[in-house]
Each structure stands twice: as C-alpha cells, then as structure tokens.
C-alpha cells in the first residue's frame, strides 16, 4: 500500500544544457517533501521527469520498484505552473474531465472543495483571476486520491487569502500511503507542511534534511536555512 519513488543517476538535458546531473533521490511514503531552490535550478524539470512529461537521458525512476511508465500516471497527480485548461472549458468541464480520465478522482470531495474555494461551476475558466485559477488547479489535483502528489509552485503569485485556503487544503490531504512533493519559493508559507526539505542548485541536491532536525540542530527556520544555503551556493 505504501508508495516509494527511487531516482538513480538521473540526467536531464535541454539541448546542450544539462539541467539535472546524476541525481539520486529516494522519496518515502507518508512524507511531504519541500523542493526548494531558485528559479531554473531543476525543480520543475525533476517534477516533470517523475510525472512522465519529460524523458531523462540517463538514469531511471522507479515507482514502487517498477520502471516508470504510462499507467503510473494514474497514481500521479500533478499541479503545474502552466495552465491546464482549454479556452472553452468551464469549471464544471474541468471537473468532468478529471472525473472521466482519473479513476481515483473523488467527485464528492471535489464539489466540497469547489464550495470551500468559492468557485462557480458554470464560470468559464479563462475568465478566472490568477488566484481563482490556482484554487481550481488545486481542487482538481487534490480531489484525486493519488499516491504521488507533485505540486509545482502551488502558491506562486497567489493572494494571501487563496494561499491560506490552499495550504489548509493540502494539509488536510496528507496521507500515510502517499508522497507529496511541493516546490516553492514561498518557503515561509509552507513551512508547517514539510517533513523534509530538498535544496536544488544547478540540478544537484545540495541539501536534504528533515525540517525538524534543521530547527533543532541549527535553531533556524527552513526559510532562513534556505537563505543560508543559497547565499553561499
């Protein structure tokens, strides 16, 4: 029942530029990982590799011991920075899409979340503000009872009220048999969510530590830890 992701010797290039170099990483069930680092350091790339939207040049990604393939997508729920919707879709259309194509989608849960996030089902997606779009994306991603949640910058550019609702919703859905990976700049906003933090710099993991250990051994917040690491990186 528990989920496990094993990444070994991962390398990902864009043309000549190597974005992820020789990365080894193990992600364990029931944990919330914070993937932190400045822009362009490989956070999104790593997430997309796990999700199967990118194919690495070298290395492998194992999900529960199996080579990553198409059917694993049914276990992975990803929130991307890019907008996911077609112009003609309403909020309801997006829900129907997820309901149709993902077996683990919980329709009742989504309806409750839609209400909580104050979204209107008939509203056209393109008319939503940035904050409302972010809320919708989160509703869709978290209404799935997936085994792996990949949230790429779920709070980026979001107003404080939306942020709070989003954090609360994420918190409520942390499960023992699932893995959550959240990449964010807004370290402060997600501090209380994180079990472990992984700091990426130039496609390499320069730090991987339990949040509470950082706090007890260094007496600083994850936010400050981030600053400390990247000031010298």
């Amino acid at each position: 029942m528990n989920t496990r992701i094993e990444i070994a010797n991962l390398q990902k290039r864009y043309g000549r530029k190597v974005v992820i170099q020789d990365m080894d990483l193990i992600l364990e069930s029931g944990k919330v990982y914070g993937l932190l680092g400045p822009n362009g350091q490989g956070k999104t790339t790593l997430i997309k590799c796990i999700a199967g939207l990118l194919t690495p040049e070298k290395g492998q990604i194992l999900i529960n011991g199996e080579m990553r393939e198409t059917r694993h997508k049914g276990m992975i729920s990803m929130l991307a920075d890019k907008d996911l919707f077609y112009k003609w879709m309403t909020v309801q259309d997006t829900i129907n899409f997820y309901d149709t194509f993902f077996e683990d989608f919980d329709r009742a849960d989504s309806e409750e979340l839609i209400r909580f996030m104050e979204l209107v089902p008939q509203e056209k997606v393109e008319k939503l503000s940035k904050g409302m779009k972010a809320r919708l994306k989160l509703v869709l991603v978290l209404s799935r009872k997936a085994k792996i949640y990949l949230l790429d910058e779920p709070l980026s550019g979001i107003d404080p009220v939306s942020r709070e609702k989003i954090v609360e919703t994420i918190l409520d859905r942390i499960r023992e048999d699932a893995i959550m990976v959240i990449s964010s700049h807004m370290v402060h906003a997600i501090e209380s969510l994180l079990d472990e933090v992984i700091l990426l710099s130039n496609g390499k993991i320069i730090a991987k530590e339990e949040a509470e250990v950082i706090r007890s051994e260094k007496g600083i917040s994850i936010d400050d830890f981030y600053l400390e690491v990247f000031r010298h990186a």
Binding site: L53, R71, G74, K82, L84, F101
Partner: peptide, 14 residues
C-alpha cells in the same frame, strides 16, 4: 505545445 500537461498526464496510452 501548450496543453500537454492535461492530456499527457492521464494514464491513457498514446
């Protein structure tokens, strides 16, 4: 080009 995240994140074979 644009909407790949939607369709290609579903567990449907290509």
């Amino acid at each position: 080009k644009e909407k790949g995240y939607l369709l290609f994140s579903t567990p449907n074979s290509a």
